[in-house]
């Protein structure tokens, strides 16, 4: 070991004393790691605060590093799309015909719905506000399923907001810094989401276990759930708006009821955060809560 490279702090000591000191430092650091682990278990919020502060500080670095990768990914995706353009065109034409039929049906239902709503003085759902954010770190790993976003408190991100993509629900905001936030994915070990299985309106809790397929627990006894059934958020507990698509039931066996999420969490580039303006889990300033937001048009905020 080179003597001249040792920390200046220890340079006045003799060799055996220095070795001793280094061992003590090592031991102290090991004990500190254990202490930090235990502290994180006992007082989770304090450790979460540390995580938020550090993540916030390095968010610009992560943002910078992830940008070229994002560009390459976009380029590859575009090249792939170009290659498949004819096949996609044919498929889209077919789909268009079918969708036009649906459009007719939807228009009719919309008119009917409006008429019926007028009839019963229906109070409409609160309009949600969107915040779009870019994924700057895929902190997946074998032990936790979460991603970091480049939007934080200053962009209106709040703890508890639902993170969605065009396909459906992908997770929930667990911690927020000034310019970054963390989304715990629905596949994470600590994710619990109240859902409804359709058809049949079976209420359940969807819980992750770090595998690709979350499972459904706490179903009412005797309820029937089969493969292919749609899973959507129930809105129970007020954490999420009801009816967000989550996934499909994959199998119902001895291992429990497994769900195939609609969102491929491995391919997250951008997510949208849904500010539903709910009190309780989602904290909103008084001027934005309740019915005031219902009157406002859905505000769209884009951050790239």
């Amino acid at each position: 070991m080179g003597l001249k490279d040792s920390p200046r702090l220890l340079s006045g000591l003799s060799q055996p004393a220095r070795t001793m000191a280094q061992r003590l430092v090592y031991l102290a650091l090991v004990l500190l790691s254990v202490a930090v682990m235990i502290l994180g278990k006992v007082d989770a919020s304090k450790m979460e605060r540390v995580r938020v502060v550090v993540t916030d500080a390095v968010a610009p670095i992560l943002d910078g590093i992830s940008r070229p990768v994002e560009s390459i990914n976009r380029f590859v995706a575009e090249a792939r799309e170009l290659y498949a353009i004819r096949a996609v065109d044919a498929k889209l034409k077919q789909e268009n015909v079918r969708l036009l039929q649906w459009q007719t049906v939807a228009r009719k239902l919309e008119a009917e719905n409006a008429a019926l709503r007028k009839l019963v003085n229906f109070v409409p759902d609160k309009k949600a506000r969107f915040i779009s954010a870019r994924v700057i770190a895929d902190a997946g790993g074998a032990f936790a399923n979460s991603v970091l976003l480049n939007a934080g408190e200053r962009d209106g991100v709040r703890k508890g907001q639902a993170a969605i993509t065009g396909d459906g629900l992908t997770g929930r905001i667990t911690s927020v810094g000034m310019r970054s936030s963390r989304v715990i994915l629905i596949t994470d070990l600590n994710s619990r989401i109240p859902v409804v299985v359709q058809p049949g309106d079976v209420r359940a809790i969807m819980t992750g276990d770090n595998s690709q397929h979350p499972r459904l627990i706490h179903l009412a006894p005797g309820s029937v759930v089969g493969p292919g059934d749609r899973v959507v958020t129930s809105g129970d507990g007020g954490a999420f708006p009801p009816g967000l698509p989550v996934g499909r039931v994959l199998s119902n066996s001895d291992q429990g009821i497994l769900v195939q999420p609609f969102v491929d969490s491995a391919r997250l580039g951008f997510v949208r955060l849904l500010d539903y303006g709910l009190k309780g889990i989602v904290e909103t300033p008084p001027d934005q809560s309740g019915l005031t937001i219902a009157g406002k048009p859905g505000r769209q905020f884009e951050k790239r």
């Binding site: 430092v25 650091l29 790691s33 254990v34």
Partner: peptide, 30 residues
């Protein structure tokens, strides 16, 4: 080159790894 990577820098790297990956803080440090 152990003299260029003292124990405290290993600790810092472990803590950062925990913070970014969402693992319980302290696990990778340990």
């Amino acid at each position: 080159r152990v003299e260029l990577l003292p124990a405290y820098s290993v600790f810092i790297i472990g803590i950062l790894q925990d913070i970014f990956t969402g693992a319980p803080i302290g696990v990778n440090a340990l």
